[in-house]
Amino acid sequence: MEWMAWTWPTALFFIIIASILVVFTILAIKFQETPRHGVLGMETTRGDRLFITLLGSAFINLAWLGIIGANQPFALIVCLIYAAAVFRWV
């Protein structure tokens, strides 16, 4: 871990993101993706919704860090609610 001065939480974060990408790739291969129209009126696939979720979660965490500063695990709860909303309605 010292070759990039990473901490275990940082490495775990990237391992989880890589695992999610692998799972979504397998899902895309096994099950045909059908674009759907959501609240925004644009067609999205599973991968699009994952990207929107990851991008939005990054902004939620940055805003949480800037406004509240501490208790970052509570930001994870907000991100999970946001992800559920994106995959349900976008």
Score class of each variant (00 low, 15 high):
3 W>I: 10
4 M>I: 13
4 M>F: 15
4 M>P: 00
4 M>Q: 06
4 M>G: 08
7 T>W: 07
8 W>M: 11
8 W>E: 09
8 W>Q: 08
9 P>E: 02
9 P>Y: 02
9 P>G: 04
10 T>I: 11
11 A>P: 02
11 A>H: 03
12 L>C: 08
12 L>A: 13
12 L>Y: 06
14 F>A: 05
15 I>W: 06
15 I>N: 04
16 I>V: 14
16 I>K: 00
16 I>Y: 00
16 I>A: 01
16 I>F: 03
16 I>P: 00
17 I>H: 01
17 I>L: 02
19 S>L: 14
21 L>Q: 09
21 L>F: 06
21 L>D: 08
22 V>L: 13
22 V>C: 06
23 V>D: 01
23 V>M: 10
24 F>V: 11
24 F>S: 03
25 T>V: 06
26 I>G: 03
26 I>Y: 13
28 A>P: 01
28 A>Y: 07
29 I>P: 02
29 I>K: 08
30 K>L: 09
31 F>Y: 15
31 F>K: 14
32 Q>C: 12
32 Q>I: 14
32 Q>Y: 12
33 E>W: 07
33 E>V: 03
35 P>Y: 03
35 P>C: 09
36 R>I: 15
36 R>E: 11
36 R>A: 14
36 R>C: 13
36 R>P: 05
36 R>G: 15
40 L>Y: 05
41 G>D: 03
41 G>S: 05
42 M>P: 00
43 E>M: 14
43 E>N: 08
43 E>V: 10
44 T>H: 13
44 T>I: 15
46 R>W: 10
46 R>T: 12
46 R>K: 11
47 G>S: 12
47 G>K: 08
48 D>F: 05
48 D>P: 07
49 R>P: 02
50 L>R: 01
50 L>Y: 02
50 L>A: 08
50 L>D: 05
50 L>H: 01
51 F>Y: 15
52 I>P: 01
52 I>F: 13
53 T>W: 00
54 L>G: 01
54 L>N: 01
55 L>M: 12
56 G>M: 03
57 S>W: 00
58 A>K: 00
59 F>L: 13
59 F>S: 05
60 I>Q: 02
60 I>A: 01
62 L>N: 06
62 L>K: 02
64 W>V: 05
64 W>I: 10
65 L>V: 01
66 G>P: 00
67 I>K: 02
67 I>W: 11
70 A>W: 10
71 N>E: 10
71 N>Y: 13
71 N>W: 10
71 N>S: 11
72 Q>K: 09
72 Q>S: 07
72 Q>G: 04
72 Q>Y: 09
72 Q>M: 14
72 Q>N: 07
73 P>A: 05
73 P>N: 09
73 P>Q: 03
74 F>T: 07
75 A>Q: 04
78 V>M: 06
79 C>E: 04
80 L>T: 12
81 I>Q: 07
83 A>F: 07
83 A>V: 09
84 A>I: 14
86 V>K: 02
86 V>N: 04
86 V>S: 00
86 V>M: 07
87 F>M: 09
87 F>K: 00
88 R>D: 12
88 R>E: 08
88 R>V: 05
90 V>G: 15
